[in-house]
Computed example of a mutant assay.
Amino acid sequence: MKHTAADLHAITATTLSHYNAVAESFREGTRDHDVSQNIDALLRHIQGQAPLHILDFGCGPGRDLRTFTAMGHVAVGLDGSEAFARMARQDSGCEVWQQDFLELDLPAERFDGIFANAVLFHVPVQELPRVLQQLHTTLKPGGVLFSSNPRGENQEGWNGQRFGAYHDLEAWRTLLTQAGFVELEHYYRPAGLPREQQPWLASVWRKPA
């Protein structure tokens, strides 16, 4: 079923309202999450010298902005949540853009890499081709996109007050390929567990030079 403009507005407004309401508990609950495997997966594929310009897409409260900055890179955050954007600016000292994922305004060929950790699954499937194309455009030629999403069987819908779309590898691969990306690698998380205990699908993609 196709989402109407009113549907999309409700999806965005309800999901962001939820995150604004739980921002402080979300920050505390995710402060110590180890995503070093994901950060390493992005950085090792970028062909360039530090400082790299990284867009932390869906930066949340700013945990990973601090990590990229400590590694010597220039990180810019983007989040739809007003509370997260404020936290991220205060905690990281980085530039942070508050933008609705369905109404992005991104500069062309600005970034060496995009870190989209646990975020793109909030974009309704029908809007993903457009959003992925916008991410493709804001990468420099040869730039790299990392994404990690909770995997599923290509269904979408509400989980409490948050909207999500849950892709399997083949569907995700099709979407990214159609947006002009070339696959570099994929893996499941957490590492070292049986597949049924690995709910996250991580993948890395290049924009051709």
Rank of each mutant, 00 (worst) to 15 (best):
P208G: 03
K140P: 00
H33C: 06
Y166M: 00
T67W: 14
Q49R: 13
S25A: 13
E196S: 12
W200D: 11
L169Q: 11
T15Y: 03
M87Y: 12
A5L: 12
V144W: 07
G142T: 04
H122A: 07
G58C: 09
I39K: 10
R89C: 07
G62A: 12
T137D: 15
T137I: 02
N20F: 05
Q90M: 12
I54M: 03
N159Y: 12
L8W: 09
L145E: 01
P208K: 04
A118Q: 10
G58Q: 09
G58P: 01
N38L: 08
L201F: 12
E170A: 12
A171P: 00
F101D: 01
H45M: 00
V123D: 05
H136R: 13
N159S: 12
L16Q: 14
G143F: 10
G62K: 10
Y19D: 03
T137W: 08
G113M: 01
A10Y: 15
A108G: 01
E170C: 06
G157R: 04
R151Q: 13
D91P: 00
S203M: 13
Y166C: 00
V125I: 10
W97L: 15
R206A: 11
V125N: 04
D112F: 05
E28D: 11
C59D: 08
S148N: 14
A6H: 13
V131W: 02
G152S: 08
Q47A: 14
A165N: 09
D112I: 05
H18T: 00
V144N: 07
S17V: 00
F84E: 08
T4G: 11
F57I: 02
T137S: 14
P150L: 08
G77M: 09
L102C: 04
A165L: 01
G142Y: 09
D100Y: 09
Q99L: 07
M87R: 11
A10D: 13
F26I: 09
C94T: 05
V123W: 08
L104A: 03
T12N: 12
F115L: 02
H45V: 01
V74S: 13
S25F: 01
W97R: 14
I54E: 02
Q178I: 02
D91C: 10
D79N: 06
L52Q: 03
D40M: 11
F115G: 04
E109D: 12
A5S: 14
D100L: 04
N154E: 03
E82D: 10
L193N: 14
H45Q: 14
N149H: 15
Y188D: 08
